[in-house]
Design a protein around this nucleic acid. Structure first.
Length: 120
RNA sequence: UGAGGUUGCCGGGCGGCCGCGCGCCGCAAGGCGUGAGGAAAGUCCGAGCUCCACAGGGCAGGGUGCCGGGUAACGCCCGGCGGGGGCGACCCCAGGGAAAGUGCAACAGAGAGAUACCGCGCGCCUUUGGCGCGUAAGGGUGGAAAGGCGAGGUAAAAGCUCACCCGCGGCUUGGCGACUUGUCCGCGAUGUAAACCCCACUCGGAGCAAGAAACGAAAGAGCGUUUGAGGCGGCCCGCCGAUGCUCUCAGGAUUUCGCUAGAACCCAUCGGCAACGAUGGGACCAGAUAGAUGACCGCCGAACACAGAACUCGGCUUACAGGCAACGCUCACAAC
RNA sequence: CGGGGUGUAGCGCAGUUUGGUAGCGUGCUUGAAUGGGGUUCAAGAGGCCGCGAGUUCGAAUCUCGCCACUCCGA
């Protein structure tokens, strides 16, 4: 996932946290706010584990999101990891995040010919 | 063969494929190179670096604490000394001063730095006992009872005297020194300084959010220039100090620098018991800023530990699956 | 990066300065009182004082090293 898609400022995180529509699964929670740009942030709390484990969870969530990125509606996303995310396998993490996006209807129909990097 | 001791090291490797940070090349698509640790951790010490006076004096406060050396420095390391533990190789110790002063030593016990309960002896009396004096050997209490043990001595006793031993001080042998050897010259002093304290040495403060620059453009207010604004973050002195300091306009988690090559590492030779030093040679590319290493798979006998750089070094401490090497190291058993 | 605070009975807290007996409230158990319950009264149980070393005759207390939680400043 390239840096231009990442949510950066603490103020932005706070904004999403306050205004965002939320939905959750066993492994993660999604907060979403409509916006002109497509930005994604990840929030992995101290309950998950030590720095190594937190980094790994963040990387796996990021990797799971990459194939979905071109099909996502524009807006600010924050994914919050919950404790089972540390032990879940990668396939389970992927299904979980797809389910979160579908639940708020944020995934475009995705015709198969859609090229990567089309997010503008 | 088994059980140990000490020291040092590794702590996955190779390949395919899709991605990420940084650097270089390219008009672009993209390509090439490179990319976490021994502890990156805890933040417990010491420095570099930056700013505050040029880092100066005193008081207060903190730190260290056997001796000698190493080091940029250290509370670290090395080698000794003393004490303690282990059959041993070896390991552990904040280990200055209690004859400078103050405090504390509960309970028990007569008495905790002085004392006399039982006892022992002598004297007197109203004689199964009481009082006075002497004594501290014995009993008892306690972690600790004013050197220990034996002999002499005595009314009973006592370093009161003597032999041996223990400790402290003086002198003395060896050593740079901690310390040690001897001596019998003097003495017999409780413990606690991780209680206050004394002595010696040492420490200025803050920290990369340090600090510097760029972007807008000039203006206003207050204080002040030897009757001193402001500055050095415990206080005082002392010093610096003038288109200077503070505030508003002022919108910024803006951008760039600081930002990684270093008292570092490896090899050889020489000096040193060693830590380490000197000389010569060699190899070096993490530098992010919501913060880069992940997904899928194959092979290597298993590779499943603890764990993620955030200015940089030297240490300490803590966590750690499994594995390797060295020492003509130690002990036990067996064989020769 | 820098600086504090807390950890003691199931729960909330004293005791740490100046070292020797661990205590208070509430909850729990038993008994009394009531037809029964609550209130009340009496008795009792419950603590490796966060962990590991050290100093001391003796440590919740002093010293050192860890662990967890929490607060503040830039």
């Amino acid at each position: 996932m390239q840096k231009r898609y990442s949510l950066k400022k603490n103020a932005q995180f706070k904004y999403v946290h306050r205004r965002g529509a939320s939905s959750g699964t066993h492994e993660a929670v999604l907060l979403y706010v409509r916006s002109g740009a497509l930005k994604v942030g990840f929030s992995v709390g101290k309950r998950i584990g030590c720095a190594v484990e937190r980094n790994r969870v963040k990387r796996r969530m990021r990797a799971a999101l990459v194939p979905l990125l071109p099909r996502m509606k524009r807006g600010l996303y924050v994914f919050i990891a919950r404790e089972p995310a540390a032990t879940a396998d990668f396939a389970r993490l992927c299904r979980s995040m797809q389910a979160l996006l579908r639940r708020q209807d944020l995934l475009l129909p995705a015709p198969d010919e859609g090229k990567a990097g089309n997010a503008t």
